[in-house]
């Protein structure tokens, strides 16, 4: 790892100044796990890291007074969410996802904002935030903007964030009547990066899928909403035929690439199988929100 400088601003404005707006070798740093890996592999040699850990505006998480949404500061660590009874009550899918996300030490330092800004399609939480309908508040020297989580990602390690822009927090709606589940499908070992990540949310009315939210990750270059598959399921009673149609629709609307975790054809099979299983799972109410 090459020599570098570290700055620790306490105010957002100072961070903007330090980061500048020129693409280059100055990077903001949250928990730093992903950055450290890239720096150690000499894939990335920053001249300066701007640590965000002292900026209070980026910390904390809480339920809104009307209990309609949860604001999560970008510097919130995964462990803080994992151990929160409030999160377990209102966003149980987040608690469920944590159990198999990396390992305890990573969860102790990795942050919600850093994880989103990294843009790696294999990460577990971005599809969950997307499926939940979270929005991301981005701040910068020119003010702030709010982007739906699923629109944050442009492609493989690419996001809409410009140099000098930071994720301030995310707002996650609490959605009564919905049940969510994150299926992490690994193929090379029990504990691995996912070959396929799939977050499924359903609002059921009896046996009928009144509304549905499906976001696929890992097998694609960015977390991707399966819009056609959602359309195929919306308002339909749960049946194997309906699930098969939804799977066909999903396979038609995304481009799956093969890699070390599986060939394209095999991952397509995994998507077909696990889409059906995940929807059945939430319809049966094993996961609730």
């Amino acid at each position: 790892m090459a020599a570098l400088e570290i700055a620790e601003p306490e105010k957002l404005d100072d961070a903007y100044t330090m980061l500048g707006t020129e693409e280059g070798s100055i990077r903001p740093m949250g928990g730093g796990t992903a950055l450290m890996l890239m720096m150690k592999a000499q894939l990335f040699k920053p001249s300066k890291l701007v640590s965000l850990r002292k900026i209070e505006a980026l910390t904390g998480f809480s339920l809104s007074v009307d209990a309609s949404h949860i604001r999560i500061g970008a510097m919130t660590t995964f462990s803080e969410l994992e151990q929160s009874p409030m999160i377990a009550q209102h966003l149980p899918v987040v608690t469920q996802t944590m159990k198999t996300l990396a390992n305890v030490r990573v969860r102790n330092v990795a942050t919600v904002g850093g994880n989103l800004a990294h843009g790696d399609p294999h990460l577990d939480l971005p599809p969950v935030w997307s499926a939940l309908g979270a929005s991301v508040r981005i701040v910068g020297v020119d003010g702030e903007r709010v982007v739906p989580a699923e629109e944050l990602f442009l492609g493989y390690y690419e996001t809409v964030l410009a140099q000098g822009e930071l994720i301030a927090d995310i707002s996650v709606p609490v959605r009564p009547g919905w049940r969510f589940f994150y299926a992490k499908v690994t193929t090379r070992a029990e504990h691995d990066w996912p070959a396929l990540g799939l977050c499924v949310g359903v609002r059921a009315e009896g046996e009928v899928i009144a509304d549905v939210s499906l976001v696929l990750s890992a097998a694609v270059d960015k977390p991707t909403r399966l819009k056609s598959a959602e359309a195929a399921l919306r308002g339909v009673a749960l049946s194997d035929a309906a699930l098969a149609m939804a799977a066909d629709a999903a396979l038609a609307e995304v481009h799956i690439e093969g890699d070390g975790r599986g060939s394209a054809a095999y991952k397509q099979q995994l998507l077909r199988v696990h889409l059906g299983r995940a929807i059945k799972h939430v319809m049966q109410g094993s996961a609730s929100a």
Binding site: G32, L37, V109
Partner: peptide
């Protein structure tokens, strides 16, 4: 809190 000493500055 446990951390990985190889990934923490």
């Amino acid at each position: 809190m446990a951390v990985s000493g190889c990934l923490s500055l």
